[in-house]
Each structure stands twice: as C-alpha cells, then as structure tokens.
C-alpha cells in the first residue's frame, strides 16, 4: 500500500496581476451591460438601411411587433397568429384606455421589427391589425449600416 506523503507546502503565487486583470474584465462587462430590455429576437434579421436613425428620446409607450422571415408574427416573445395578434392588440389598447391618465392611443408607438425576407403584405396586415386597434404611430425598424450610396448630384 502506498503511503501518502505528508508534504504540506503552501505554494504562494503572486495573485496581484490576476486580480488586476479580473477587475478589468469585470469593469469592462459592467460598463457594456445593458439592462434595458431591448426586444431583439434571433429569428428576426432586420433590413439594412443607412438612414435608420435611433430614436433621440425613448418612446413613451412602445409596443414591439416582430415578424420572422417566414412571415410569422412574434409578439412578446411568442409566435402567434394574425387573429391572436388582433385580439392581443385590442386588449393592449383597452388597457391603455382603462389606465385613464394622459397617455392616448395615438401616443403609443408601434415598433415594427420585420425580417428582411418577410412578405410585405404580411407586414402590412400587421400594421392594419394595429390600426384596427386604433394605434397610429409606427416605427419601422432597420439595422444601421455605413453610408455606402453614391449621392446623386
């Protein structure tokens, strides 16, 4: 049988550089972290546009509707049908109306995040569904790109 050697020797490495690095990393990730819940979905690939500008002030009452490349509606993270979307939007409108205070349906911005391959007709149906629920301000979302166009003189 082997006998364990009782060799207790405390190896003391210098931890300082490692701790420095780890703190740097923490600081980096802390600064970059972003808790605002941006509704970004992997299923949606936004169309590119060099003129899409981020809103200067955050929307007061945003509602995000998304559409995947297969023209399926994603509302609050779930795939739903067009009829369900209509119901959900009407409910949403009722809640805003019931809340009373000064938010009006026309102040609500409906953010449309549609995939670049989505069928336009389906996107329009989504807009019409929101219009039926009496929303009227829309933001068509695109992904910003570098300026690549030749400007016409």
């Amino acid at each position: 049988m082997r006998v364990k050697k009782n060799r207790k020797e405390m190896a003391e490495g210098d931890m300082t550089p490692m701790i420095d690095m780890v703190f740097q990393l923490i600081a980096f990730f802390m600064v970059l972290i972003n808790f605002t819940d941006v509704e970004q979905d992997d299923r949606v690939q936004l169309p590119l546009s060099e003129l899409a500008k981020p809103p200067e002030v955050a929307y007061e009452e945003p509602i995000t509707l998304q559409m995947t490349g297969d023209s399926e509606v994603v509302f609050s993270g779930e795939l739903i049908s067009m009829d369900e979307l209509k119901l959900a939007l009407k409910r949403e409108a009722q809640i805003i109306r019931a809340a009373g205070d000064d938010t009006q349906l026309s102040d609500v911005t409906v953010i449309i995040r549609a995939d670049k391959g989505a069928r336009t007709g389906k996107v329009q149906e989504m807009i019409e569904a929101s219009q039926e629920a009496e929303f009227e301000t829309f933001a068509l979302r695109g992904q910003q790109t570098e300026v690549k166009m030749r400007t016409t003189e």
């Binding site: 970004q40 936004l46 003129l51 500008k53 981020p54 009227e136 933001a139 979302r141 992904q143």
Partner: peptide, 25 residues
C-alpha cells in the same frame, strides 16, 4: 461577478427607426 457579467452580456446591434404616422384609413 465576472461569470455573471459574461453570461448576461449581449451584443446589441445599432438599430434605427423610420417614423411613420398612419391613421386608420
């Protein structure tokens, strides 16, 4: 802490909007 921040890290691509007002026809 480091693991937490790495896990919650999400690259947010810059997105922009076209604002369109479309009242019900």
């Amino acid at each position: 802490l480091l693991i937490f921040f790495i896990m919650t890290f999400k690259i947010v691509l810059p997105e922009g909007d076209f604002n369109v007002r479309m009242p019900t026809p």
